[in-house]
Simulated scan of single mutants.
Amino acid sequence: MVDVVTEIEIRRPRVAVAAYAANPENAPAWYSNIKAVRWETAPAMALGSKVAFRAQFLGKSLEYVYEFTELDPGRKLVMRTAQGPFPMQTTYTWTEAAGGSTRMTLRNTGTPPGFPAVVNLVMAPMMRRAMRKDLAKLKSLLEGGGSQATQEKTQRKDKS
């Protein structure tokens, strides 16, 4: 069993961080391993919605479908693999932090089949490094270190 939790504080309002991070179409912009995203159901954030991801991890191309299993807009999102190489659950939570910032927590849990416990000891630190890097990229994008188009899109969401 792999269970990895990382978090970061982002100097943006909770609703803005959650709106951007929860939108699967934004995943390739901040997840280094995700190369493509495609809706399997109508593109709407709802319980039961499914999204297909194509990713690169440990030198291998992975394709998997996540299903939204818990959704509290602006506060929590839980996705579980409906199809893919191994069962995985990803949880995002967003809480308000000092000065109008947001604390985002990213948690991945799963049990890769055919991987002995010793490999899991190696896999968890690799996942943790990748997740920290991804959250740092998200922070950079949302705090203004990203492209102008991303900044403008995020600013528009703040106003709505």
Score class of each variant (00 low, 15 high):
residue 7 E to I: 08
residue 54 R to C: 06
residue 156 R to Q: 13
residue 138 L to A: 01
residue 143 E to Q: 07
residue 112 P to K: 10
residue 12 R to S: 10
residue 151 Q to S: 13
residue 8 I to Y: 04
residue 43 P to G: 07
residue 99 G to I: 02
residue 56 Q to M: 14
residue 27 A to I: 08
residue 79 M to F: 06
residue 75 R to S: 13
residue 139 K to I: 05
residue 107 R to Q: 11
residue 35 K to Y: 00
residue 127 M to C: 00
residue 128 R to I: 00
residue 85 P to V: 03
residue 149 A to L: 09
residue 159 K to N: 12
residue 61 S to G: 14
residue 92 Y to S: 08
residue 154 T to W: 05
residue 47 L to R: 10
residue 83 Q to A: 15
residue 47 L to D: 05
residue 159 K to E: 13
residue 49 S to R: 04
residue 82 A to Y: 05
residue 8 I to R: 15
residue 97 A to R: 00
residue 96 E to W: 04
residue 110 G to Y: 04
residue 148 Q to Y: 11
residue 113 P to L: 07
residue 123 M to G: 06
residue 28 P to Y: 03
residue 124 A to K: 08
residue 72 D to C: 13
residue 117 A to F: 10
residue 107 R to T: 08
residue 2 V to T: 14
residue 115 F to G: 07
residue 52 A to V: 03
residue 83 Q to P: 03
residue 101 S to E: 02
residue 10 I to E: 03
residue 77 L to I: 10
residue 154 T to I: 11
residue 124 A to C: 06
residue 42 A to N: 06
residue 141 L to R: 03
residue 66 Y to W: 09
residue 44 A to Y: 09
residue 59 G to N: 09
residue 138 L to Q: 01
residue 119 V to F: 14
residue 77 L to E: 08
residue 9 E to D: 09
residue 154 T to R: 09
residue 126 M to T: 12
residue 126 M to D: 07
residue 66 Y to A: 15
residue 44 A to P: 02
residue 25 E to Q: 12
residue 139 K to W: 02
residue 44 A to R: 15
residue 70 E to I: 07
residue 77 L to Y: 05
residue 4 V to N: 04
residue 67 E to G: 03
residue 45 M to K: 07
residue 93 T to G: 10
residue 102 T to Q: 02
residue 54 R to P: 05
residue 29 A to N: 12
residue 54 R to W: 06
residue 53 F to K: 04
residue 79 M to E: 11
residue 20 Y to E: 01
residue 11 R to D: 12
residue 27 A to K: 09
residue 54 R to L: 13
residue 143 E to N: 02
residue 49 S to M: 02
residue 61 S to F: 09
residue 123 M to A: 12
residue 152 E to L: 14
residue 16 A to V: 15
residue 56 Q to L: 14
residue 73 P to Y: 08
residue 63 E to M: 12
residue 22 A to M: 14
residue 71 L to V: 07
residue 90 T to D: 11
residue 140 S to R: 07
residue 17 V to M: 03
residue 38 R to I: 02
residue 68 F to H: 03
residue 139 K to Q: 11
residue 51 V to C: 05
residue 37 V to S: 01
residue 99 G to R: 02
residue 99 G to E: 02
residue 158 D to R: 14
residue 127 M to V: 11
residue 31 Y to R: 14
residue 131 M to G: 01
residue 114 G to M: 05
residue 42 A to S: 13
residue 138 L to S: 00
residue 108 N to P: 07
residue 140 S to E: 13
residue 46 A to W: 00
residue 141 L to W: 02
residue 120 N to F: 09
residue 113 P to I: 06
residue 84 G to R: 03
residue 111 T to L: 12
residue 132 R to E: 13
residue 21 A to R: 04
residue 128 R to W: 06
residue 143 E to W: 01
residue 131 M to Y: 09
residue 89 Q to P: 00
residue 107 R to N: 05
residue 115 F to R: 10
residue 129 R to Q: 14
residue 10 I to T: 03
residue 30 W to K: 00
residue 34 I to Y: 08
residue 7 E to C: 08
residue 87 P to R: 09
residue 71 L to P: 00
residue 6 T to V: 15
residue 107 R to E: 01
residue 113 P to W: 03
residue 27 A to F: 10
residue 146 G to T: 10
residue 154 T to P: 02
residue 7 E to M: 12
residue 40 E to D: 10
residue 101 S to I: 01
residue 96 E to K: 01
residue 66 Y to S: 13
residue 124 A to G: 08
residue 107 R to V: 02
residue 106 L to T: 05
residue 24 P to H: 06
residue 126 M to V: 15
residue 35 K to R: 15
residue 6 T to K: 00
